[in-house]
Nucleic acid binder design. Structure first.
Length: 569
RNA sequence: UGUCCUAUGGUGUAACUGGCAACACGUCUGAUUUUGGUUCAGAAGAGUCUAGGUUCGAGCCCUAGUAGGACAACCA
């Protein structure tokens, strides 16, 4: 190594550590397996909304393409018309776009139906596929078990001519659903169940969201995926671990179809899917939550869907950073939600506008403050961003502070307001609590305090020392708002990990608490849906699409870290 | 009574076979702070599932075991 190189390496710090897929790609690039080409693909089935697990796969596939100067295709795996809908393809495209990725081409497996059918005919001609008349149940029975070989179908030895005729008949709608199925002729005794004459085509007399009524037979995933990769020239076909046992079949179909065994072929590589504690990632279960109305829809802010997280106030960057942080490996994992929350806070801290909001109001009357006086206090919009500027916040005689910022009998380490104590109103004055006014039942109704005129923020000559600073709102100027306070949807770390219990049993009854007694700064009347704010000392909130100037509505994205909560329990 | 995959601090990911293991999250100290936020400084926490083997030398290679996961839709 030259001095030059050494210097460069020292400048850039440590060698970047690669995950096993990056190592493979770099090895392939070095061996010029596909020249300098890197082409990946993200292949969602349009039968549901994308979730955070997909975000990991998206970041991987698109990220790899970016890193290695390649491209990534978006390919909808639409081989099962009964579960797939155009609504889903639209939402998927919107979500990927929102995450900030651009696909090189938009394809559909259904684009390849003609070619796939031609290949099926070819396999029949080669004697590698046959039409089976057995029912799905019968085929299932005769498939054997992982430890016991299957039994060959009586139709396995049909002549090529008959198979060809039958396949043609299937395609032409001469048979009903389930009456016939095209099977690959491989090995009923294979220890790999997927090689025991797997189905290639089944009859489904259902309209397809793109091909309409053109077809009544549809290829199975296994007969479509590898060939689709091949057609597009995909170099690295990445999928999750459960497809590992499908890889021999992926390769088998390619082996039959490829003329030149040494020519280009795509290769499947599997990585571990994302799991996060306190959440579920199964599309089927997420669909159930929507259909059974445990949530308000796919974009309910409690859902781990991209659209739900967007509405909750997550940013694209925070999700991409999260996907980066969880890493790529083959080991099953359960990521702590704390990492996700850290990722949003990290981004939101940098970009979000600070505002005052009082979630649980307690009235404070400044007895020595003139009745009709109002002042504009200048508040910093974002201490992390000098260019964010300042804004005026109205101050007056009657204020709201947080209920929890006052305690009649405070513990030792309580730095906020208490009888006879002082506290700084941020950007305002220091006040002292002189009287606690209660109603008949003994509940605290309001606080009578005095303010120190010479303690005004920025020109404080009072010399008074305070231990705490709290936020506040002028009662006269505060705007009532609806705050949707979200908590985790499930109360169990692994809701679907209990054999004897349904995941629904762990739904958290307090996952949404609507706060309608809160007040916010009047500037928030103008908040636009998806705008991000930090309600100082409370948390990050995002305006919901239900928000209006009459009634601002915000979703809690995530609370601020709260070390006081740890101390106070 | 099968095949395949995996096994590193609480969690997740690293470590180009060769300095009793690094980074992030989390946890705990302390400092700063007109957000009990942020930031900063620091600490605790694993001897790399077990047993053998190869080697001068193994978290990395081999064998066996153990544990976890995947596979028996005409789903993807």
């Amino acid at each position: 190594m030259t001095e030059d190189h050494k210097g460069k390496q020292e400048e850039t710090g440590k060698k970047p550590s690669l995950n096993f897929i990056e190592s493979m790609i770099e090895r392939d690039l070095k061996n010029q397996l596909h020249g300098d080409k890197v082409l990946t693909r993200f292949p969602p089935e349009p039968n549901g909304y994308l979730h955070i697990g997909h975000a990991k796969a998206i970041s991987l596939n698109f990220g790899l393409a970016q890193k290695y100067n390649g491209n990534c295709n978006l390919r909808f795996d639409d081989t099962n018309p009964v579960t797939e809908e155009d609504e889903y393809v639209q939402s998927i495209k919107e979500d990927i776009n929102w995450l900030g990725f651009k696909w090189a081409n938009e394809f559909f497996a259904s684009d390849y139906f003609d070619q796939l059918y031609a290949w099926a005919v070819k396999l029949v001609e080669m004697g590698k596929a046959y039409v089976d008349d057995q029912s799905a149940e019968k085929i299932s029975e005769t498939r054997g078990t992982p430890t016991r070989p299957g039994i060959e179908s009586p139709h396995r030895t049909r002549s090529v001519e008959e198979n060809l005729r039958l396949l043609e008949g299937m395609k032409n709608g001469e048979f009903n659903d389930g009456e016939k199925v095209l099977r690959a002729k491989i090995d009923m005794a294979s220890p790999n169940m997927h090689l025991r004459d797997p189905a290639m085509y089944r009859i489904k007399k259902a309209p397809h969201h793109r091909t309409g009524n053109k077809w009544c037979i549809y290829p199975m995933y296994d007969f479509a995926h590898g060939q689709s990769d091949f057609i597009e020239g995909i170099t690295h076909s990445l999928c999750t671990l459960e497809f590992e046992v499908h890889r021999p079949l992926y390769d088998w179909f390619l082996d039959q179809i490829l003329e030149d065994k040494n020519a280009y072929r795509p290769r499947q590589t599997e990585f571990a899917r994302l799991n996060i504690n306190y959440t579920i990632m199964s599309k089927r279960k997420l669909l159930e939550l929507v259909e059974e109305e445990h949530v308000t829809g796919w974009d309910d802010p409690r859902m781990p869907t991209i659209s739900g997280m967007r509405r909750r106030g997550y940013t694209p960057l925070s999700i991409r950073n999260f996907a980066e942080k969880v890493g790529i490996a083959k080991r099953n994992n359960i990521i702590d939600v704390a990492l996700l929350e850290h990722s949003v806070r990290e981004d939101l801290n940098k970009i979000s506008q600070r505002v005052f909001a009082v979630l649980d109001p307690l009235k404070v009357i400044l007895t020595n403050y003139p009745e009709n006086k109002e002042e504009e206090m200048m508040a910093v919009n974002n201490p992390e961003d000098e260019n964010a500027g300042k804004r005026p916040v109205m101050f007056s005689r009657e204020l709201y502070i947080e209920q929890e910022d006052f305690m009649e009998n405070p513990p030792k380490k309580f730095f906020r307001l208490a009888p006879g104590g002082v506290v700084r109103l941020k950007y305002g004055y220091i006040i002292q609590c002189n009287e606690v006014v209660k109603d008949q039942s003994g509940n605290i109704k309001e606080l009578h305090c005095e303010y120190f005129p010479e303690s005004r923020s920025g020109s404080d000559t009072s010399g008074i020392k305070v231990k705490g600073t709290i936020h506040w709102l002028s009662a006269k100027h505060a705007v009532p708002a609806e705050l949707r306070m979200y908590d985790r949807l499930f109360s169990d770390e692994d809701p679907s990990g209990h054999k004897d219990k349904d995941y629904r049993e762990f739904l958290n009854p307090d996952s949404l608490i609507i706060n309608e007694k809160a007040f916010v700064e009047s500037s928030l009347r103008n908040a636009k849906p998806l705008d991000h704010f930090q309600f100082e000392r409370k948390g990050y909130f995002s305006a919901d699409h239900d928000t209006s100037s009459d009634k601002p509505v915000f979703n809690l994205t995530v609370t601020l870290r709260d070390s006081w909560a740890k101390i106070s329990g």
